[in-house]
């Protein structure tokens, strides 16, 4: 099923899979979908997460400490797809674990699992020809990041290379929470609109109902990552799914007009 946003703005939830363990990640993912997440980004833990702030770094270390692998994330995707087929599923990874599994092999397994899209943090459009070809063969949607520092010439290429949605980074920096949405996010979304009809999701630093409402003024969806990973870090594993669901309820999501 193609990625669909059923809320205005839509909600994308990022989880570091394997934190605190695979079974709990699955329960959190199900709870997040039931609490309104339109799309889940299933984060693959990596040893060198250079685009991530301390919260997701620590989550990656915990997930790797008990050996979470990309193939485990794909297995989880298959289970989630079977149980909640309405939710969009995106594999969110650094490039190296994907290369190690093999681009073709990865895409084939992701397609079989029912994955909709893939976002590779350190894959830029200029290097992506082979990747996009493999994605196309397996009917997967590549999602690229757009940054406030990206000039229009790059935004045009990013928009043309993306499918499903475009991920607009709200500010320069690594993942993590912030006090308020910067003007960067609105300006970037406006610039991107010149080049694409695709939905635009805004992420990095989105952590409250106010942020989500602010993002909804100009973009199609909000991505929440570190705020949720921090809740999981603070919760006992058995309570984590409920804690995440309560947090998502506090965002007061509105159904999209049909």
């Amino acid at each position: 099923m193609p990625i669909q946003f059923r809320h205005k703005p839509g909600l994308v939830v990022y989880l570091t899979i394997g934190d605190p363990d695979l079974a709990t990640s699955k329960q959190i993912a199900l709870a997040a979908i039931d609490a309104g997440a339109d799309v889940l980004e299933l984060g693959v833990p990596f040893s060198d997460p250079l685009a991530d702030g301390p919260v997701i770094q620590r989550a990656s270390e915990r997930a790797l400490a008990h050996g979470t692998r990309l193939t485990d994330v794909l297995t989880l995707a298959r289970e989630l797809h079977a149980e909640r087929p309405q939710a969009g599923l995106v594999i969110f990874s650094y490039l190296n674990p994907v290369l190690r599994l093999g681009l073709e092999n990865f895409c084939a397994q992701a397609q079989q699992a029912g994955v909709d899209g893939v976002l590779l943090t350190d894959m830029i459009v200029e290097e992506a020809d082979e990747y996009r070809a493999a994605m196309r063969r397996h009917k997967l949607q590549p999602i690229f990041l757009a940054a406030p520092t990206s000039p229009d010439t790059r935004l045009e290429k990013i928009a043309a290379s993306s499918e499903g949605f475009v991920y607009a980074i709200s500010r320069t920096g690594i993942t993590g929470t912030q006090q308020q949405m910067t003007n960067d996010a609105g300006q970037l979304t406006e610039r991107l609109r010149r080049y694409t009809q695709l939905p635009i999701a805004v992420g990095f630093g989105v952590s409250s109902a106010e942020h989500v409402a602010a993002v909804g003024q100009f973009a199609d969806a909000a991505v929440i990552g570190s705020a949720i990973v921090a809740i999981i870090e603070k919760s006992a594993p058995a309570q984590a799914p409920t804690a995440v669901a309560e947090f998502l309820a506090s965002l007061r999501l509105q159904p999209a007009a049909v």
Partner: peptide, 9 residues
């Protein structure tokens, strides 16, 4: 070049 988009500019 395999970097976050923010660095490309």
């Amino acid at each position: 070049r395999y970097v976050p988009e923010t660095l490309m500019a």
